[in-house]
């Protein structure tokens, strides 16, 4: 069992540092953002499972199996002495595993509740302050000079545009913005972003969490950009990005908020490098999806292997 724990620990370390670093610097995700997004999710889930699994399996190792440890320790929690084969390190590992699992789950729940509360408030404000846009369902226009577009995801959805945006953009550019926001809503990007946001806030000291969150945000933007390019063309999207990213003629007024330059340039550069309908992805899709599936299967197989008492072990 200790060997399984060591294996899971090695997998957790690989997924926590070298692999995300390489992936966040790779060029191919810009060509196949959907596949890269799937891989990031597999890395995050597999990383969490193997990290918790490593502690759990090591902590349970004196009993020979996870269920064996459960039967040995749970009655002892209430009634009496902890079986002597469990040392302090084993109990510490088990406590840490449970703590980590609860911490990650609570953070996800808290982030989801906060986001939902904010969305409800947004819907209230937007439906009172915004005018419906003729011919565009679920789209509201706010009377404000700053060129801004955003969407409110969830069960009820809204795409919000400002007067300033509509004045500053050509009809094609506006169509690109609306197609971009619709893609976020249709493809449920908020759920993926929420999970990575929660992971980042649960492990703020973990440098990779920040890198992972930024990569995932950028990939979601690229996916939405692809929809905008198909709907309105490359030039329309480029024009819209430049106007909104630069604050446009109206500017953001008193709000000293500046566009995220790295992300904006990555999206603009991609327009030149990646063709709109890239039919041949830079890496074989099946290979990456297979690797993602394998990443999830390995920790789950390890859990199953040590779940119950093995006749040989």
């Amino acid at each position: 069992m200790v060997a399984v724990a060591v294996g899971l620990g090695a997998l957790a370390l690989t997924l926590a540092w070298p692999i995300p670093l390489v992936l966040s610097r790779a060029a191919w995700p810009a060509h196949s953002p959907a596949v890269a997004l799937a891989l990031w999710q597999a890395i995050a889930v597999a990383g969490g499972l193997s990290m918790i699994g490593c502690l759990l399996v090591f902590g349970a190792s004196p009993a020979g199996s996870l269920l064996g440890a459960w039967h040995a320790l749970v009655p002892a929690l209430f009634t009496g002495p902890i079986p002597p084969q469990f040392g302090v390190v084993h109990l510490a590992a088990l406590t840490l595993a449970a703590g980590l699992a609860v911490h990650l789950a609570l953070n996800l729940a808290l982030t989801a509740v906060r986001a939902e509360r904010e969305r409800r408030r947004q819907h209230q404000l937007v439906s009172l302050l915004g005018d419906p846009m003729p011919g565009q369902p679920h789209t509201r226009v706010l009377a404000h000079p700053a060129p801004l577009a955003y969407c409110v995801p969830g069960i009820r959805t809204a795409t919000v545009l400002t007067d300033g945006l509509i004045d500053a953009l050509s009809p094609d550019e506006l169509a690109a913005v609306i197609a971009h926001e619709r893609a976020h809503l249709d493809q449920l990007h908020h759920l993926v972003l929420l999970a990575f946001r929660a992971w980042h806030s649960a492990l703020p000291w973990f440098p990779i969490a920040n890198r992972a969150e930024r990569s995932v945000i950028l990939l979601a933007e690229m996916l939405a950009d692809d929809r905008a390019r198909r709907a309105a063309g490359d030039e329309a999207l480029r024009g819209a990005l430049l106007v909104v990213g630069g604050g446009g003629p109206g500017g953001y007024g008193d709000d000293t908020v500046i566009a995220d330059a790295d992300m904006l340039t990555a999206r603009l550069d991609r327009l030149d490098v990646v063709p709109a309908a890239s039919s041949s992805p830079a890496v074989p899709r099946a290979l990456v999806l297979g690797a993602s599936a394998l990443l999830l299967i390995v920790p789950l197989a390890a859990y199953t292997a040590v779940l119950a008492d093995h006749p040989a072990g």
Partner: peptide, 28 residues
């Protein structure tokens, strides 16, 4: 009210990034 709403949407120092998706992200 609209100005207040815009201020909230542009404020990155909160959890709103997880709730909304802006066309162009911002840094503060």
């Amino acid at each position: 009210h609209t100005a207040e709403l815009m201020h909230e949407v542009l404020d990155r120092s909160s959890d709103r990034d997880a709730a909304l998706a802006r066309f162009v992200g911002t840094v503060s």
